[in-house]
């Protein structure tokens, strides 16, 4: 851990004024740790029969958390210009909307299949 903090400090001194501040290895390792824990939780949810009823929302929340961690820290959206976040979040919104609409439309259609 101390080594990681050291590296982070080393980067800070190298920071150029015109470059957005990127986190150091320390942060990256913590995020990676979280990702592993979340994945372990996902797999646990899959294997625990008691959670069958809530499996969909729980898995979705866990996946969203992993998604957000990678996008914010590994892809630096937390540190970069808001424009970049916008370029990413708007398509995500449209994609989610499309996915949900198609699922509903085909759920209706399922009652009308020959």
């Amino acid at each position: 851990m101390s080594e990681a903090t050291q590296t982070a400090g080393a980067i800070a001194t190298h920071d150029h004024a015109d470059q957005p501040h990127h986190p150091g290895a320390g942060i990256y390792l913590i995020v990676a740790l979280f990702l592993c824990v979340l994945t372990a939780m996902e797999i646990t949810v899959f294997y625990v029969p008691a959670l069958k009823t809530v499996i969909v929302p729980v898995l979705l929340v866990l996946a969203a958390a992993k998604f957000a961690l990678i996008a914010m820290f590994f892809m630096h959206l937390k540190y970069d210009s808001w424009t970049l976040s916008g370029i990413f979040i708007f398509p995500l919104f449209i994609a989610a909307f499309m996915l949900a609409s198609l699922m509903m439309l085909f759920a209706y259609l399922a009652h009308h299949l020959a």
Binding site: T7, I11, Y28, A32, F74
Partner: peptide, 10 residues
């Protein structure tokens, strides 16, 4: 691999 990737960047 994503972790390794950000470490490479760092």
């Amino acid at each position: 691999s994503s972790l390794a990737m950000v470490l490479a960047l760092a």
